[in-house]
Structures are given as structure tokens and as C-alpha cells.
Amino acid sequence: MSTDGVEIPAKRGLLTIAGAVLALAGIIAGYGFISRAQSKQEVVDWTSQQTTATVSLASFIPTPPNQILTLPGNVQPFNKAAIYARVNGYLKSWEHDIGTPVHAGQALANIDAPDLDQQLSQAKATLASVRANLQIANLTASRNNVLLQKQIVAQQLADQTDADAKAKEAVVDANEANVKQLEAMQSFKTLAAPFDGIVTARNVEIGMLISSGGAGQPLFEVSDLHKVRIYVQVPQSFSAGLKQGMAATFEMPQYPGVQFDATLSHISKSINSTSHSMQVELQANNADGKFFGGAYCNVHFQIPSDPNHLRLPSTALVVNDKGAQVAILDANNKVVLKSVQLGRDFGDSVEILAGLTASDRVVNNPPETLANGDLVQIAAAPASS
């Protein structure tokens, strides 16, 4: 058997194996190049994602038909009168203490006024004297008129006696008026309640020196509490929603969890230039006597909402040297900072009067570094449970 036939197949096998090895090496090298290119692109994509801010969108808060406005109120009696003395003297007695119900005209206290009594006695004596003088003057004038008819006295004398009688009559009228005035002053020695109510203050004691006039502390205070008035200072921004006759409720700290009804009765229609608020008055029935003058309360108004106004979470606002702004996204997810006009502040949300539409996409909690034209990506919404 010849050896040449055996060597030729062996060489061909070696060439085939070598070609396979080279092909495998080429495949491995190509795969490496492709893997490195893909890894490089992934790094580029990851880096781009890391440099693009991720933001979440704020949702517009539905506006209810009515907004509840809560403001502090000051409760006052429906009527309140401070009782002062009209005469000088000393307190003789007082009849009713604080908390006592009284009726109109009922005596509260009595004043001993010796000076007034003396003035009245003197005025009466003077009146009696001038009346006597008037009587004599009338008799003299009458006699002279008779003698004048008999031509015994001159016309001048008769005229003088008539004039003297009329002058003395005028003096009598003046003294009668003086006596009536002092008698009227005598009635002020008794301090009386001006209307049905409750004695809410007594600042007198027996024997105290009493001076007439309205200076200083009142002697008594009487309050009509069958109804109460509640005074509230309403900020100017809320004043347009108030209407006379509007129903409201109020709460008092001594009755926790209990709401009472009131009605808006009067609107001052005047804005205070210092506080930029308007005073309004509410009235509430107090048949149970639960409300007292000077009490504090929280009043709740139902203010109609404007359907054209939007509400956003307060966290969506950007406040800078340009005022209040919000960051919205355009169609390419690029940031646009827009100035807005703010309305009422509800604490966790604010009212937007102008500058936004309901279709705008507003960024919530925008980063401080966010600027116009920045490209951002929107965070995925959390899955609902």
C-alpha cells in the first residue's frame, strides 16, 4: 500500500480546521465590537437620563360651588347702655347687682342730692316772691287804668304800671321754668333701666360721691341680650361675595363642636384704609342666653366660587423677583415659566385668577434650578392599589 494516498487527506483536514478556527475568531471579534458599541450607547443614554430632571405634574383642584371663609367675630349685645348720673350727690342705695334681669324704667339706684334739694327750695321761694310782686303790679296797673279813665292820672303813669306788670309776669314765667327744670332734675336722683335687659356692670357703692356727666366709668351697664350682634372684619378680597341676608354659622370655644346660626344683617360698604377690611354685622337669636357681650367666636361664611378661577397646590408656585410664577411644560416637555395672578390663599392651595388654563401641564415642586427651555421627563404615575 502506498503512503502518498494517506498524507493528502490529512492536509485537507488541517486546512478545514484552520478555516473554522479563523471563522470562529472572526465571529467572536465581531460580537465583541457590537457589544462594546451597544454598551457605549447605553452609557450615553443613561448619562442623558441622569442629566434630564424628572418632574411630577400638579393636578388642578376642583373648585366647589361655595368656599367656606372662617373669620374671627366679636359678639356684642343687641342694645347696651352705660348709665351715668345727671346730678351730683352721694349714692343712697342700689337695687340690682350684676346678672339681674331688669325691666324698662325699673330703679337701679338712688342718689341723695342735698345741693339740688336746696336749689329747688330756693327756686320755689323765689317763685313765690315774684308772684306776689306780679300780683301787686297787676293791682297797681288796674287802679291806674281806672283813674286814667277819670283823668285823675296821666297816661304816662298808666303805661308805666302796665309795663311793670308785664315785666313782672315775665319774671314769674322765668322762675316757673327754673322750678320745673329743678323738679325734672329731681327725677334723675333715681337711676333707671332704659330698656328690658340684664345688669352687666355695677361700679357704685353706698355713700360714694357721685358726679354728673359722662366722664369716667359708668355707674351701671344694662345689656339687652335677647339677640346679639356679631361684628366681623372681612378682607377686601372676599368682600364682593357678601350679600345682605346671607346665612352663616359660628362657633364659640365654651361650646366645642356646636354650631349656631346667624344672618348677615348689615354691610358697612366701607374699606378700612389701614387693615383693608370691611366691617359687617350679623345677628343671632339668644333666647337661651348662651351668648354674652364681648365674647369671641369663629364665623363661617359660604362664599360663592367663581367657576373661571383655577386652584393649584401651593407647592406648584415659584416665587422669585418676578413675582408668582408656575412652571408648565410645552409639547416637547420643555419648561416655560409663566407669571400668574394669585387670588385667595387657602393654605394648602391657592386660587389662580389669570395666567393659566385648565389644559396647561403644571410642574409640582419645581426644582430651584429649573429654567426656561430646560428639557424634563415626567415621572411615572404611582400604581394605584
Rank of each mutant, 00 (worst) to 15 (best):
A37F: 00
A18H: 01
I83Q: 03
G13N: 08
A29L: 06
A53M: 06
A82W: 00
N66G: 12
G13I: 09
Q76P: 10
V87N: 04
P72S: 12
A85P: 09
A37E: 06
R36V: 00
F78Y: 08
G73Q: 09
K92N: 15
I34Y: 08
T54H: 13
R12I: 07
V44T: 10
P62I: 13
L15A: 15
A58F: 08
S56P: 01
K92T: 01
A37P: 02
V44G: 02
K92H: 11
Q67E: 15
P65N: 15
S93P: 04
N79G: 03
S59T: 15
Q50V: 11
V21G: 14
L22W: 07
A29K: 12
I83A: 04
P77V: 11
W94T: 11
V44W: 04
T52Q: 13
S93L: 03
N74G: 08
G32S: 11
V75E: 09
V87H: 01
A23F: 07
F33W: 00
Y84A: 02
L22D: 00
S35Y: 05
A25Y: 14
Q67W: 14
G32H: 06
A85M: 04
P9Y: 09
R36L: 02
F60E: 04
G32Y: 00
V75C: 08
I34S: 09
T54I: 01
N88L: 05
D45P: 01
T63G: 07
G32A: 09
K40S: 10
S39E: 11
P72M: 03
T51G: 06
A58Y: 03
S35L: 03
A58N: 04
A82E: 11
A58C: 11
T16Y: 04
A53R: 07
N74F: 13
G13C: 04
L57N: 06
K92L: 06
A18S: 14
L69H: 06
L69R: 00
L91E: 10
Q67M: 12
I61F: 07
Y84I: 03
I28N: 12
A29N: 12
P64T: 13
S93I: 10
